[in-house]
Amino acid sequence: MELFIAIFTGTIIAATPLIFAALGELVVEKSGVLNLGIEGMMLMGAALAFWAVTAGCSMPVAIVAGALAGAAASLLFGVLALTFLTNQYAAGLALAIFGSGVSAFLGRGFGSVPIEALHRVDIPILSDLPLIGPLLFRFDPLVYLALLMFVAISWFLYRTKAGLILRTIGESPQTSHAIGYPVIRIRYMAVLFGGLMAGLAGAYLSVAYTPLWVENMTAGKGWIALALVVFATWRPLRVLLGAWLFGGMTILQLQGQALGLQVPSELLSALPYLATIVVLLLISRNRQMLALHFPASLAKPFRPAG
């Protein structure tokens, strides 16, 4: 039972940064923009949030600082991709490299400073329930925020007019522009939102999950989040399920190391990357399903005529 609880809660926690980052990217891609720089934005968020904590800021301030760092980084991408119409692949890659450099630079001072992790919430009565309490009601607030974001984004995309406009822009910016929607401005907002979420994901890693700062600590989680969006065929619920799947993979890998499985630790560490390839492979074979939810204008530069 203990082990089950540990695996279950560990999965939910490990999935949280992926949920933030992948849901943010989902909104960006739904608007027809592909930002490959999640890894860079996450690292910026992680470094800034950690720095804020060591500088004596309160936890909420630090987390907001991390999210804003991600948004600021995404603005660089936005200017290039939306105003200067550059190749979005290249602009995203530049952001990934730049973010890793800037975060390493910012983080050079706080190598092994220990910080106190984000506290979990204690809900009266609920947290003390047998079984249900430890399973569901003893997480830190960001875990709940991630789930809340899932509900909010699903509702926004499919139940509001603004969400419909965003998706229309992702399908056909030309048509949307002709109708009179400010395509570029809405895409900027989507990109900024994606940056905010990636920054939040990074902040979660450095002040709640680990909690410490290591250069390039995201270790590919930003790229896995990108893969999750494809795996989810651009649908929020599947992003959530996919994130839990990967969270579970991470936890099984850690548990496997703890149990002393007779396999090289590198093989266990490679599992999430192998799993990413396998799920991409499975999902990509079904072209029809991909095409159904794929934002038709994804990664295509758009400039209103005139």
Binding site: G40, L76, V79, L80, F84, L85, T86, N87, A90, A91, L93, A94, L95, I97, F98, G99, S100, G101, V102, A104, F105, R108, E215
Partner: peptide
């Protein structure tokens, strides 16, 4: 890490200049 920062900035400017 400065090297990576410069790499990123260089690519940013290059992409923007291409416009």
């Amino acid at each position: 890490a400065l090297t990576r920062i410069f790499q990123g900035i260089l690519l940013f400017f290059l992409l923007a200049a291409d416009f």
